[in-house]
Amino acid sequence: MINSLNELYCLGIESTADDFGVGISTGGGKIIANVSNGYIPEEGGIHPREAARHHAKVASEVLSKTLVQAGIKSSDLDLIAFSQGPGLGPCLRTGATIARAIAAYLNIPLIGVNHSIAHIEIGKLETNAKDPVTLYVSGGNTIISAFNSGRYRVFGETLDIALGNCLDVFSREAGLKHERRIPLGAALEKLALEGKNLVSLPYVVKGMDVSFSGLLTAALNLLNQKRYRLQDLCYSLQETTFAMVCEVTERALAHTEKKEILLTGGVAANKRLQYMLSLIAKDHGARFNTVPLKFATDNGAMIAWTGLLAYKNGIVTPNEKSMVKLKWRLDRIDIPWIN
């Protein structure tokens, strides 16, 4: 029985925001395909309906590429997993519709997966972390969580906008461009490397939570005043916001006494943030892991793998319960696959 479970093929569909990703995982945790196509807005941030339109357009191409990469036929698939939330409504619904259609056509089980949990699970799989404090920072999420008695618990989160959102809006206002495959955050990071002077910005940590909206407004005001070099502002913005999430992560680490830190989400690509967290880990005798970029940003493989974990524990999502959940918290879900 164990062997046959390990030989299952699960196809995962991710479509919570700007990326449409499809991945295939085996029951044993081998990722045999992971393909993604991102929507890039002509200007401004993500427009949910435009992003959803993009997903519908590229879906069949991404799906066939995934099967080719995996070297299997659609009839070899045993399960379909999809990200059921949290995320943008139109984008989520596009992915869910595709997932339901494939599952019905192939007559195989459907599994709705929580996007945030998928980030943690693929991170653990790829870095061999066992029981980490996870800092998940992206354009839509800022969550510090760790496992405790049956569920992933939230030990801290943003009270308003996400860290990636804060950095993106600032970058965009500063005139940085979202170029193909070079996210705004990377452009900001590059400029920050040339920064020398720390400009004072509000440092907002409330207990274990952080808040970025006031800080962003303050940074934008300074930007408009043109009193400081842009490099210094980028540098100060990174130093201040990263120090905030690092403080909260360190607090969660001290509180839970866990021995691993896992960094994931799009902002995980930032070398400065990685370095800061590695110092914290060292200080607490913990192991620091950064999830490799292709598995840290939104991807289909993480949905496939988490779908498998759920399926192995008897969880499937019947059609009538497969509607998307825009605000699905990760601490609302029982995790039977961890003892």
Binding site: P86, E157, A162, L326, K327, W328, R329, L330, R332
Partner: peptide, 8 residues
């Protein structure tokens, strides 16, 4: 909070 069912 960002992902709260009650709000929905």
């Amino acid at each position: 909070g960002r992902y709260i069912e009650e709000r929905k």
